[in-house]
Design a protein around this nucleic acid. Structure first.
Length: 293
DNA sequence: AAAAATTTCAACCGCAACAAG
DNA sequence: GCTTGTTGCGGTTGAAATTTT
Protein backbone atom coordinates (compact mmCIF):
# COMPACT_ATOMS: atom_id res chain seq x y z
CA UNK A 1 0.00 0.00 0.00
CA UNK A 2 1.45 3.32 -1.01
CA UNK A 3 1.75 6.03 1.51
CA UNK A 4 -0.73 8.85 1.26
CA UNK A 5 0.82 12.09 0.11
CA UNK A 6 1.61 14.62 2.81
CA UNK A 7 -1.29 16.67 1.60
CA UNK A 8 -3.97 16.67 -1.02
CA UNK A 9 -2.23 17.87 -4.12
CA UNK A 10 -5.36 19.08 -5.84
CA UNK A 11 -6.14 22.74 -5.54
CA UNK A 12 -3.00 23.59 -3.64
CA UNK A 13 -0.85 26.43 -4.79
CA UNK A 14 2.73 25.89 -5.83
CA UNK A 15 5.57 28.16 -6.79
CA UNK A 16 6.80 31.38 -5.28
CA UNK A 17 5.16 32.69 -2.14
CA UNK A 18 3.37 36.01 -2.19
CA UNK A 19 3.86 38.60 0.56
CA UNK A 20 0.26 37.96 1.62
CA UNK A 21 0.94 34.28 2.09
CA UNK A 22 4.08 35.08 4.01
CA UNK A 23 2.12 37.39 6.29
CA UNK A 24 -0.48 34.74 6.95
CA UNK A 25 2.11 32.16 7.77
CA UNK A 26 4.14 34.43 10.03
CA UNK A 27 1.06 35.68 11.79
CA UNK A 28 -0.23 32.20 12.42
CA UNK A 29 3.08 30.88 13.72
CA UNK A 30 3.58 33.95 15.89
CA UNK A 31 0.25 33.32 17.52
CA UNK A 32 0.09 29.55 17.69
CA UNK A 33 3.46 28.12 16.86
CA UNK A 34 3.69 25.83 13.91
CA UNK A 35 2.27 22.79 15.68
CA UNK A 36 1.50 20.14 13.11
CA UNK A 37 2.75 21.28 9.74
CA UNK A 38 0.20 19.10 8.08
CA UNK A 39 -2.74 20.89 9.60
CA UNK A 40 -1.17 24.34 9.64
CA UNK A 41 -2.09 25.49 6.13
CA UNK A 42 -5.75 24.88 6.72
CA UNK A 43 -5.70 26.59 10.09
CA UNK A 44 -3.72 29.50 8.73
CA UNK A 45 -5.93 29.84 5.67
CA UNK A 46 -3.24 28.95 3.19
CA UNK A 47 -3.67 26.95 0.02
CA UNK A 48 -0.31 25.30 0.46
CA UNK A 49 0.80 21.92 1.66
CA UNK A 50 2.38 21.64 5.07
CA UNK A 51 5.68 20.75 3.59
CA UNK A 52 5.74 23.93 1.58
CA UNK A 53 4.85 25.96 4.67
CA UNK A 54 7.58 24.33 6.70
CA UNK A 55 10.12 25.00 4.00
CA UNK A 56 9.07 28.59 3.60
CA UNK A 57 9.29 29.13 7.33
CA UNK A 58 12.59 27.39 7.95
CA UNK A 59 14.34 28.75 4.89
CA UNK A 60 12.98 32.23 4.68
CA UNK A 61 10.57 33.55 7.28
CA UNK A 62 12.08 32.38 10.55
CA UNK A 63 13.06 35.46 12.55
CA UNK A 64 16.54 34.18 13.30
CA UNK A 65 17.49 33.81 9.66
CA UNK A 66 20.63 35.71 8.85
CA UNK A 67 20.28 37.14 5.38
CA UNK A 68 22.90 38.70 3.19
CA UNK A 69 26.21 37.55 1.85
CA UNK A 70 28.39 34.93 3.46
CA UNK A 71 31.57 36.27 4.96
CA UNK A 72 34.88 34.74 3.90
CA UNK A 73 35.03 33.18 7.37
CA UNK A 74 31.65 31.58 6.83
CA UNK A 75 32.83 30.20 3.52
CA UNK A 76 35.98 28.80 5.05
CA UNK A 77 33.93 27.15 7.74
CA UNK A 78 31.59 25.64 5.20
CA UNK A 79 34.54 24.14 3.35
CA UNK A 80 36.05 22.81 6.55
CA UNK A 81 32.77 21.30 7.59
CA UNK A 82 32.16 19.86 4.18
CA UNK A 83 35.53 18.15 4.35
CA UNK A 84 34.43 16.57 7.62
CA UNK A 85 30.74 15.96 7.06
CA UNK A 86 30.31 15.73 3.33
CA UNK A 87 26.98 16.82 1.91
CA UNK A 88 25.25 16.94 5.25
CA UNK A 89 23.95 20.41 4.74
CA UNK A 90 21.77 20.45 7.81
CA UNK A 91 24.69 19.45 10.01
CA UNK A 92 26.85 22.10 8.41
CA UNK A 93 24.12 24.69 8.77
CA UNK A 94 23.83 23.92 12.46
CA UNK A 95 27.34 25.30 12.86
CA UNK A 96 26.46 28.56 11.14
CA UNK A 97 23.77 30.25 13.17
CA UNK A 98 21.10 31.85 11.07
CA UNK A 99 22.04 30.02 7.92
CA UNK A 100 19.84 27.34 6.43
CA UNK A 101 20.81 24.04 4.92
CA UNK A 102 19.31 25.17 1.63
CA UNK A 103 21.37 28.32 1.62
CA UNK A 104 24.57 26.45 2.33
CA UNK A 105 23.78 23.85 -0.27
CA UNK A 106 23.27 26.63 -2.80
CA UNK A 107 26.45 28.37 -1.72
CA UNK A 108 28.34 25.16 -2.17
CA UNK A 109 26.86 24.27 -5.53
CA UNK A 110 27.09 27.72 -7.04
CA UNK A 111 30.31 29.12 -5.59
CA UNK A 112 32.50 26.98 -3.45
CA UNK A 113 32.41 23.88 -5.60
CA UNK A 114 33.37 25.84 -8.66
CA UNK A 115 36.17 27.60 -6.89
CA UNK A 116 37.62 24.36 -5.65
CA UNK A 117 37.40 22.90 -9.12
CA UNK A 118 39.16 25.93 -10.54
CA UNK A 119 41.92 25.35 -8.04
CA UNK A 120 42.19 21.75 -9.17
CA UNK A 121 40.68 20.39 -5.98
CA UNK A 122 38.08 17.71 -6.07
CA UNK A 123 35.12 19.19 -4.18
CA UNK A 124 33.98 15.80 -3.01
CA UNK A 125 37.25 14.51 -1.65
CA UNK A 126 38.90 17.87 -0.95
CA UNK A 127 42.03 16.53 -2.49
CA UNK A 128 43.87 17.63 -5.61
CA UNK A 129 41.89 16.37 -8.51
CA UNK A 130 43.77 13.95 -10.77
CA UNK A 131 41.47 14.74 -13.64
CA UNK A 132 42.43 18.38 -13.51
CA UNK A 133 46.06 17.91 -12.91
CA UNK A 134 48.20 16.17 -15.45
CA UNK A 135 45.48 14.19 -17.10
CA UNK A 136 44.84 11.15 -15.01
CA UNK A 137 47.34 11.11 -12.19
CA UNK A 138 48.17 13.58 -9.49
CA UNK A 139 51.43 15.29 -10.23
CA UNK A 140 54.37 14.17 -8.13
CA UNK A 141 54.74 17.76 -7.01
CA UNK A 142 51.22 17.88 -5.64
CA UNK A 143 51.59 14.50 -4.04
CA UNK A 144 54.79 15.57 -2.36
CA UNK A 145 53.33 18.81 -1.16
CA UNK A 146 50.26 17.16 0.20
CA UNK A 147 52.24 14.52 1.94
CA UNK A 148 54.56 17.17 3.33
CA UNK A 149 51.65 19.15 4.64
CA UNK A 150 50.13 16.06 6.16
CA UNK A 151 53.33 15.10 7.96
CA UNK A 152 53.79 18.61 9.21
CA UNK A 153 50.25 18.63 10.49
CA UNK A 154 50.77 15.37 12.30
CA UNK A 155 53.97 16.63 13.85
CA UNK A 156 52.24 19.80 14.91
CA UNK A 157 49.38 17.87 16.36
CA UNK A 158 51.70 15.66 18.25
CA UNK A 159 53.40 18.70 19.77
CA UNK A 160 50.14 20.38 20.56
CA UNK A 161 48.59 17.35 22.09
CA UNK A 162 51.57 17.10 24.43
CA UNK A 163 50.97 20.67 25.43
CA UNK A 164 47.31 19.95 25.82
CA UNK A 165 47.91 16.99 28.03
CA UNK A 166 50.08 19.12 30.27
CA UNK A 167 47.54 21.86 30.57
CA UNK A 168 43.78 21.83 30.51
CA UNK A 169 43.56 20.89 26.86
CA UNK A 170 43.96 17.21 27.59
CA UNK A 171 40.59 17.07 29.22
CA UNK A 172 39.20 18.95 26.31
CA UNK A 173 40.47 16.43 23.89
CA UNK A 174 39.82 13.38 26.00
CA UNK A 175 36.29 14.53 26.47
CA UNK A 176 35.93 14.67 22.74
CA UNK A 177 37.68 11.40 22.28
CA UNK A 178 35.51 9.61 24.77
CA UNK A 179 32.35 10.91 23.23
CA UNK A 180 30.07 9.26 20.73
CA UNK A 181 31.73 11.08 17.92
CA UNK A 182 35.16 9.99 19.04
CA UNK A 183 33.94 6.44 19.15
CA UNK A 184 32.54 6.83 15.69
CA UNK A 185 35.87 8.04 14.43
CA UNK A 186 37.71 5.21 16.13
CA UNK A 187 35.44 2.62 14.61
CA UNK A 188 35.75 4.24 11.30
CA UNK A 189 39.46 4.37 11.41
CA UNK A 190 39.75 0.69 12.18
CA UNK A 191 37.32 -0.19 9.46
CA UNK A 192 39.04 1.91 6.87
CA UNK A 193 42.52 0.88 7.77
CA UNK A 194 41.64 -2.70 7.20
CA UNK A 195 39.44 -2.35 4.21
CA UNK A 196 39.91 0.70 2.10
CA UNK A 197 43.03 1.66 0.27
CA UNK A 198 41.59 5.10 -0.22
CA UNK A 199 41.28 5.60 3.45
CA UNK A 200 44.89 6.43 4.10
CA UNK A 201 44.61 9.41 1.86
CA UNK A 202 41.14 10.34 2.91
CA UNK A 203 41.99 10.24 6.57
CA UNK A 204 44.23 13.20 6.25
CA UNK A 205 41.97 15.61 7.91
CA UNK A 206 43.13 15.24 11.43
CA UNK A 207 45.45 12.97 13.26
CA UNK A 208 46.17 13.52 16.90
CA UNK A 209 48.40 11.74 19.32
CA UNK A 210 48.22 12.07 23.06
CA UNK A 211 50.55 11.13 25.88
CA UNK A 212 48.16 9.51 28.31
CA UNK A 213 46.68 7.26 25.73
CA UNK A 214 48.19 6.80 22.34
CA UNK A 215 45.36 7.91 20.23
CA UNK A 216 44.68 8.83 16.74
CA UNK A 217 41.71 10.74 15.62
CA UNK A 218 40.82 10.43 12.02
CA UNK A 219 38.14 12.79 10.98
CA UNK A 220 35.69 11.92 9.09
CA UNK A 221 35.19 12.63 5.47
CA UNK A 222 35.16 8.89 5.01
CA UNK A 223 31.94 8.98 6.94
CA UNK A 224 30.42 10.78 4.07
CA UNK A 225 31.71 8.30 1.56
CA UNK A 226 30.91 5.04 3.23
CA UNK A 227 27.25 4.13 2.81
CA UNK A 228 27.29 2.01 5.90
CA UNK A 229 28.30 5.04 7.92
CA UNK A 230 26.02 7.46 6.24
CA UNK A 231 23.89 8.00 9.26
CA UNK A 232 26.41 7.74 12.01
CA UNK A 233 26.79 11.42 12.66
CA UNK A 234 23.13 11.99 12.12
CA UNK A 235 22.39 9.27 14.62
CA UNK A 236 24.83 10.81 17.04
CA UNK A 237 23.17 14.13 16.57
CA UNK A 238 19.76 12.73 17.14
CA UNK A 239 20.71 10.53 20.01
CA UNK A 240 18.97 11.81 23.07
CA UNK A 241 21.51 12.52 25.71
CA UNK A 242 20.97 14.33 28.95
CA UNK A 243 24.64 14.59 29.65
CA UNK A 244 26.81 17.39 28.45
CA UNK A 245 28.36 15.44 25.63
CA UNK A 246 25.66 15.81 23.07
CA UNK A 247 26.99 15.25 19.61
CA UNK A 248 26.16 18.86 18.78
CA UNK A 249 28.50 20.08 21.41
CA UNK A 250 30.96 17.41 20.54
CA UNK A 251 31.07 18.47 16.97
CA UNK A 252 31.60 21.98 18.21
CA UNK A 253 34.47 20.72 20.33
CA UNK A 254 35.90 19.07 17.30
CA UNK A 255 35.67 22.30 15.39
CA UNK A 256 37.04 24.26 18.31
CA UNK A 257 40.06 22.08 18.84
CA UNK A 258 42.63 23.31 19.66
CA UNK A 259 41.22 26.80 19.58
CA UNK A 260 38.06 28.28 18.32
CA UNK A 261 37.63 27.63 14.61
CA UNK A 262 41.30 27.50 14.18
CA UNK A 263 42.26 24.89 11.67
CA UNK A 264 45.94 25.67 11.83
CA UNK A 265 46.46 22.27 13.35
CA UNK A 266 45.70 20.91 9.94
CA UNK A 267 49.01 22.15 8.79
CA UNK A 268 49.33 25.82 8.21
CA UNK A 269 50.00 28.70 10.50
CA UNK A 270 47.81 30.95 8.48
CA UNK A 271 44.76 29.98 10.48
CA UNK A 272 43.37 27.87 7.71
CA UNK A 273 44.93 26.20 4.80
CA UNK A 274 43.63 22.84 3.80
CA UNK A 275 45.15 23.25 0.40
CA UNK A 276 48.88 23.86 0.74
CA UNK A 277 49.55 24.13 -2.93
CA UNK A 278 47.12 26.91 -3.54
CA UNK A 279 46.65 30.51 -2.77
CA UNK A 280 43.52 30.23 -0.70
CA UNK A 281 43.10 33.98 -0.69
CA UNK A 282 41.81 33.75 -4.20
CA UNK A 283 39.45 31.04 -3.09
CA UNK A 284 37.75 33.39 -0.70
CA UNK A 285 37.50 36.34 -2.96
CA UNK A 286 33.85 36.08 -3.56
CA UNK A 287 31.88 37.00 -6.59
CA UNK A 288 30.60 40.55 -6.95
CA UNK A 289 27.24 39.37 -5.81
CA UNK A 290 28.77 38.29 -2.52
CA UNK A 291 30.65 41.51 -2.23
CA UNK A 292 34.17 40.30 -1.46
CA UNK A 293 36.14 40.92 -4.59
C1' DA B 1 19.47 47.42 -27.76
C1' DA B 2 18.35 42.77 -28.16
C1' DA B 3 19.09 37.98 -27.96
C1' DA B 4 21.45 34.21 -26.04
C1' DA B 5 23.88 32.12 -22.45
C1' DT B 6 24.84 31.60 -17.81
C1' DT B 7 24.11 31.96 -12.93
C1' DT B 8 21.47 32.11 -8.83
C1' DC B 9 18.43 30.52 -5.45
C1' DA B 10 13.65 29.56 -3.85
C1' DA B 11 10.92 25.83 -4.06
C1' DC B 12 9.65 21.10 -5.13
C1' DC B 13 10.18 16.05 -4.91
C1' DG B 14 11.13 11.63 -3.11
C1' DC B 15 13.21 9.04 0.35
C1' DA B 16 14.35 7.65 4.97
C1' DA B 17 14.05 8.11 9.86
C1' DC B 18 11.29 8.65 13.58
C1' DA B 19 7.01 8.58 16.36
C1' DA B 20 2.57 7.09 17.57
C1' DG B 21 -1.01 3.83 17.80
C1' DG C 1 6.69 -6.01 15.97
C1' DC C 2 3.92 -3.92 12.40
C1' DT C 3 1.56 -0.20 10.09
C1' DT C 4 0.72 4.44 9.24
C1' DG C 5 1.49 9.36 9.64
C1' DT C 6 4.84 13.17 10.17
C1' DT C 7 9.04 15.43 9.75
C1' DG C 8 13.57 16.42 8.05
C1' DC C 9 17.03 15.93 4.67
C1' DG C 10 19.49 16.07 0.28
C1' DG C 11 19.09 16.21 -4.71
C1' DT C 12 17.09 18.54 -8.39
C1' DT C 13 14.46 21.89 -11.04
C1' DG C 14 13.12 25.99 -13.27
C1' DA C 15 11.96 30.93 -13.24
C1' DA C 16 14.14 35.18 -12.61
C1' DA C 17 18.14 37.87 -12.72
C1' DT C 18 22.44 38.88 -14.56
C1' DT C 19 26.13 38.78 -17.82
C1' DT C 20 27.97 38.14 -22.31
C1' DT C 21 27.86 38.35 -27.22
Amino acid sequence: MGRAPCCEKKGLKKGPWTPEEDDKLVEYIDKHGHGSWRSLPKLAGLLRCGKSCRLRWTNYLRPDIKRGPFTPEDEKLVIQLHAILGNRWAAIASQLPGRTDNEIKNLWNTHLKKRLLLMGIDPQTHEPSPSLDGGGLPSPRHMAQWEGARLEAEARLSRESHLCSEGGGGDHFLRLWNSEVGETFRKFKIKNQSSSPASSASNKCCSISGTTTEIELKVARPLAEDPSSKHILRDCKRAKSDIEDSSESTLQLLLDFPSNNDMSFLGDADCYNLYPDFNTDSLFHSSPQHGFV
